[in-house]
Design a protein around this nucleic acid. Structure first.
Length: 731
RNA sequence: GGGCGGUUAGCUCAGUUGGUAGAGCGCCUCAUUUACACUGAGGAUGCCAGGGGUUCGAGUCCUCUACCGCCCACCA
């Protein structure tokens, strides 16, 4: 009724007389899709599954440009495959994102003048949980606003009880398989966050610092870190160094040092570079990886000098409790007073390791942590990758992955933060032995019989997300794992190839015996219009939701895809999005024109053979691109056809040639289908109008309407070219 | 030190297996309410970083060089 009333004399809906208005369309259309139930594969016909597990979203902020790209690319694949008749599952998820979220929340606490170190574990955990769940509502509606056709009925959260239990089960399994150990080793410790990190979470930063040449008995040692030198009672040199051949390994010497006389032991070790500095160094095994290894080789004592809060311990005497920067200065002053500073090189360039979250200088510490033995896992993965069982897009990521796997080191999965999955283990209070304990049954140490305490650490967030493809499917409906695993495509940011993708491959392979996915599609960064990385400090962050409000979601989506090859970063210029907004409007007016021609449609539904064949060639070509993940070129071809062939030439020709109206109706319908994965909202909106048209003017449209199968949603219309049958789909 | 990329029109980038260069934006000229001015018609612009090689033919394959970028690595 409303429909009829809103028509003008040509039978065209009034809304087509105005420019396309995304704001009045998108929300309504999304609800229509959601209500239809076709996001859920259980409601789709066909039996060939196609699965993408969505990278679980960090719920600690707002949707950013990178998310927009993920949602767009994955939705394109899913919509395309759905139209091709696959039982498509796109599984959405939420990530607690351990340290990421805790760091965001700690910043908020800082603003409020609070600190996590004044809170109980329970308090902090429940506050962050609230924060996460609140944010997740926003993120979810923002994902929907991008048009994502994922199955919300299968949404999972990394802290869901069943997920946690499954992660626990596999933690135990790794232990049983000999792939897990608790080791007292040097870890990368951030004194600000007071947690250890994996090697991937550390950044190298080049700095210029003073380099001190200090008199150490008969030697001169060079160091940038005098504050660690209190415990240095070993002086190390290369066994072949002629300059020091009079000194023997194990020989003791007396010398005056920072806080008085000490006894030092000579150590000969080949790790020393004779060319560097003076060829002599003292070692601090507790706070330096290389020194730790030397100490291990010779069975030397290890003493802690710096506390977990980054302040000096009582071993430092009068400097106890000082922060490193302050202590460094004071120690040098004292040594100068004693005449022990030989010279200072003020222009010493070296690499400092910093925390990737806060930039604080990493203070290596010896800590007892859980490590996953990576070599055996990597070897299995390498076999599969080398035989080409995973396709990488772009291809060179395969080489990068292989190189990383070949040089892999063990993975520290313990984090000293509250926000995460608690590690189900007991620690012996006397010998430090760690024991996996899922059901709280370990009451005493298996090794020494000593009493045990709960491990207070949590898992590295990537330990659970690396299990995500099978963890989600194994905890959903009964047949989901069987039906949808291995998944088809893993699409995510190239940046997290090691953090996430490579680890998913290794764990998936080990736990399920199968690769978790067949194809890895890695996208690049979304940069600002000038090609710079977006960052809050530069103030050049583009909020995708501002863009969709201004130009429409479809315009942003296609702007993110055209010209965006896998792995390459994309400069997001507003002018381009504006151009695609114009395209949306163009399509809108094409529809308006075609709809106005309805009374000229030929009942016999005879199509112009050449134009139909031309379109079928395009459909074939586009299909080929879609199958090969060349969305950037498929989209461009459709764009070009619709605007510069269909509108500029064919529609103009149809004004002169009375035989063409039926053909333009056919071409519009099928163009909408090809464009739908890229610009779902406007194409569905026009489709809905065409559907009305058919019920209104069935005679004009001849036999193209089947009463038994009324058209409903473009989203589930068959794709115009069906490769399986090697011929274009029937009208 | 090791690894991986990039260098194509003013700008941002395409260019599938080798067949005498493409898109968008921008620019210039014209049209003026046409389904669409969120428009249409037409136009200009490239020693495809440089050298060498393979080939009937190279932006595309091989090799060297230059510059730019990214990742990995415990020189005190």
């Amino acid at each position: 009724m409303i429909f009829k009333e809103s028509k003008n004399s040509n039978g065209v809906n009034e809304k087509f007389l105005k420019p396309y208005n995304p704001a009045q369309t998108e929300d309504r259309i999304y609800k229509l899709w959601e209500k239809s139930g076709f996001f859920n594969p259980d409601n789709l016909p066909g039996d060939k599954p196609f699965t993408i597990i969505m990278p679980p979203t960090n719920a600690n902020g707002s949707l950013h440009a990178g998310h927009a790209l993920v949602m767009t690319i994955e939705d394109i694949m899913i919509r395309y495959k759905r139209m091709r008749g696959h039982k498509t599952l796109w599984l959405p998820g939420l990530d607690h994102a351990g340290i990421e979220t805790q760091a965001v929340y700690e910043k908020q606490l800082e603003k409020e003048g609070r600190s996590r170190f004044d809170m109980s574990r329970e308090e902090l955990y429940s506050e962050i949980l609230n924060f996460t769940l609140n944010n997740s509502k926003n993120i979810k509606s923002q994902i929907k606003s991008m048009g994502a056709s994922c199955d919300w009925s299968r949404e999972k959260f990394t802290l869901d009880e069943d997920i946690v239990n499954l992660v626990y089960k596999n933690f135990k399994r790794l232990s049983e398989d000999g792939l897990l150990y608790r080791g007292s080793r040097i870890v990368s410790w951030c004194p600000k966050h007071r947690t250890a990190f994996s090697d991937l979470e550390i950044l190298d930063e080049e700095r210029v610092d003073p380099f001190y040449y200090l008199k150490y008995g008969p030697f001169t040692i060079a160091t940038a870190r005098p504050e660690t030198k209190f415990g240095d009672k070993y002086v190390v040199m290369h066994p072949d160094d002629k300059r020091y051949e009079d000194y023997k390994h194990g020989q003791k010497i007396e010398l005056e040092w920072i806080n008085g006389p000490i006894t030092a032991t000579i150590i000969k070790d080949e790790a020393i570079d004779m060319e560097f500095g003076t060829g002599v160094m003292t070692i601090t095994p507790w706070h330096d990886t290389a020194d730790f290894e030397i100490a291990e080789r010779h069975g030397l004592d290890k003493e802690q000098i710096i506390g977990e809060d980054g302040k000096l311990l009582p071993i430092a005497g009068e400097f106890t409790g000082m922060k490193i920067a302050e202590a460094r200065q004071k120690i040098i002053e004292k040594l100068e007073g004693k005449g022990l500073v030989e010279k200072v090189d003020t222009n010493y360039k070296h690499v400092v390791r910093t925390c990737y979250k806060c930039g604080t200088v990493i203070e290596p510490q010896i800590k007892s942590q859980w490590f996953v033995r990576m070599k055996p896992l990597a070897e299995k993965a390498l076999e599969k990758i080398n035989t080409g069982e995973i396709t990488y897009l772009p291809e060179h990521y395969k080489k990068i992955t292989i190189h990383w796997l070949e040089n892999i080191i063990d993975w520290n999965i313990s984090r000293q933060i509250v926000w995460g999955i608690p590690i189900p283990a007991k620690i012996c209070e006397s010998c430090g032995e760690g024991m996996v304990d899922l059901d709280n049954s370990v009451k005493s140490c298996a090794k020494c019989g000593g009493s045990v305490r709960q491990d207070n650490d949590t898992f590295d967030t990537w330990f659970s997300s690396s299990q995500w493809p099978y963890a989600t499917l194994q905890t959903l409906r009964e047949k989901d794992f069987e039906t949808f695993y291995p998944t088809d495509v893993m699409e995510t940011a190239g940046e997290i190839i090691f953090f996430w993708v490579a680890r998913m491959v290794m764990l998936g392979l080990h736990v399920t015996g199968e690769l978790p996915f067949k194809t890895v599609y890695l996208h690049g960064l979304v940069l600002d219009a000038k090609g710079r990385k977006m960052s809050k400090s530069k103030g050049n962050v583009i909020n995708p939701l501002d863009l969709t409000a201004k130009y429409g979601t479809d315009a942003l989506r296609i702007a993110l895809v055209i010209g965006n090859t896998p792995g390459t970063s994309l400069a997001l210029a507003e002018d381009r999005i504006k151009g695609y907004k114009n395209f949306a409007n163009k399509l809108w007016n094409i529809a308006r024109y075609v709809l106005s021609q309805v009374d000229k449609f030929d009942k016999s539904d005879k199509l112009n053979k050449e134009l139909k064949e031309e379109f079928d060639d395009l459909a074939k070509d586009v299909t080929n691109d879609m199958e090969n993940f060349r969305f950037y070129i498929a989209a461009e071809k459709i764009y070009h056809y619709i605007w510069h062939r269909f509108a500029d030439e064919i529609l103009e020709e149809s004004k002169k040639n009375p035989e063409l109206p039926s053909t333009i109706h056919y071409l519009l319908e099928n163009s909408l289908k090809l464009l739908h994965p890229f610009m779902p909202f406007i194409t569905e909106e026009i489709w809905q109008e065409l559907k009305h048209l058919e019920t209104e003017f069935p005679s004009a449209l001849g036999n193209s309407v089947s009463k038994s199968e009324p058209r409903t949603l473009l989203m589930i219309e068959p794709w115009p070219f069906d490769k399986a049958q090697s011929k274009p789909a029937k009208l």
